[in-house]
Amino acid sequence: MLLTVNNLSVSFGGVHALHLDHFSLGEKELRVIIGPNGAGKSTFLDIICGKTKADSGEVIFKGKPVLGKSEVQIAELGIGRKFQKPSVFPELTVYDNLLLAVKTKKDIFSTLFFKVSPAIAERIHDVAARLQLNTVIYKQAGALSHGQKQWLEIAIVMLQDPTLMLIDEPAAGMSDEETEKTGALLLELANTHSIIVIEHDMKFVEQIANHLVTVLVRGKRLMEGTFEEVKNDQRVIDCYLGRTNAQLETL
């Protein structure tokens, strides 16, 4: 297993945001996590990538414990993250955004005297082309459309070349056509990377969920199975069809 999570729990101000007994992900597996709002999906990714500190539990990545490590150490281990709200460098050009992401030495002196080699330039342009950013590559990232920003962030994660990609709602704010393209790209990436995707859009989930889907509800794992199993599970349907509120209120 590439990633193993046991008894992970975190609470904010007394409210359990996440209480996950077990979660595991294999090499080159694409896992989709779904669940209603506040289910703790993003919090789960935040803990893996070091943004949020867990209260207890363990996260093992490539046989090494992840909890307690800094964001940089986790990134160096090979975990890349795309956030729900596109997080790019708005005042830099798309090219510079990508240049910073490329996997090279990232200490002060190497950056101070860094020269772009033809290989790197080629890689940047290559990735940009795959995400249709080549036409805007010298534009400021802040001037891009929402969908383009999403792609730019995916491109940044790709150039980091991580073993595990954590992708939070990649299709939000995209047209149907763009969504489908994103799905195709993720499936392609899954040939070489392990990926966890959080998504709401069921059509999109259906497109990319070629393996397992995990359902989180109120911080706990409700079930895990193929898309078909999940789609037909009564508890999942309940969660998505209004009874959630009634249940929440009784709690």
């Binding site: 997080s87 708005p90 860094f114």
Partner: peptide, 21 residues
Amino acid sequence: SKFGKVLQAIRDSESRVSFTA
């Protein structure tokens, strides 16, 4: 330099820079 770009990137979104290692 790339160093300078990192600085500007920190100004724009420091957490993104951290997650980019």
